[in-house]
Write a protein that binds this DNA or RNA. Structure first.
Length: 199
DNA sequence: CCAATGATCTGCT
DNA sequence: GCAGATCATTGGC
């Protein structure tokens, strides 16, 4: 699975990232779950309302990392899309394939399969922090995005814990992996059926 | 300056 | 499976 062309739109890049590898300081994971966020066109994106100090990295060149902190956890995105479009792919989960000892040390009492299951857990396992925001992924820095083995299949579905734009199936997973989080609707919008009161 | 929001995680039932 | 904790960023007064 080669690293996809990161200048494409996020929802085209996202499925191509499944099976690729993310390495930080000797710890490597195989990406098994991602979500696409398409900047100002996407109500669920941090970039929807335009550029702010926090999301500035997403407006920068593709192939860089966008790290943000929320609820006391870090989440990381691969910046992609045509220049200036602020598209990004959130890395939601991965399987640790190298550096297991270091990974286990960072997450004591957690089963191997869920060391990097969930965005916040993944960054903690890899040791990614806000200091890695806007770091380049393709030029041999501390954080590197590398090609990996091709996966048997890639499944698409609605995004997790996003309160808007559920109709876009921009969550991509490797269905063969045990490190993928369960489908779950956002608490505020979990009712798939149209809630009443149209007019 | 203050209050609300949010791409989450963990623990308990 | 569900409710609560917890923290930085944002928008408004």
């Amino acid at each position: 699975m080669p690293v996809p062309d990161l200048d494409q739109r996020a929802h085209l890049v996202a499925p191509g990232l499944i099976g690729c590898e993310l390495w930080v300081d000797g710890v490597g994971v195989r990406i098994v779950e991602v979500e696409a966020y398409e900047g100002p066109d996407d109500p669920a994106s941090h970039a929807w309302r335009g550029q702010t100090p926090r999301n500035a990295a997403m407006f920068g060149p593709s192939g860089h990392l966008y790290v943000y902190q929320m609820h006391g956890h870090f989440c990381c995105n691969v910046v992609c899309g045509p220049p200036g479009t602020a598209h990004g792919v959130l890395i939601r989960a991965g399987e640790v394939i190298e550096g297991l000892d270091a990974a286990r040390e960072r997450r004591v009492g957690v089963r191997d399969a869920q060391l990097a299951r969930g965005p916040g857990n993944l960054t903690r396992t890899l040791g990614i922090t806000r200091a890695d925001n806007a770091t380049p992924l393709l030029t041999g820095g501390r954080v590197r995005l590398l090609p990996g083995e091709r996966t048997a299949a890639v499944a698409a579905g609605p995004r997790v814990n996003v309160s808007r734009a559920h109709d876009r199936p921009w969550r991509f997973v490797d269905p063969a992996s045990g490190s993928v989080s369960a489908f779950k609707w956002h608490p505020a919008t979990r009712t798939p059926k149209a809630d009443p009161a149209p007019a």
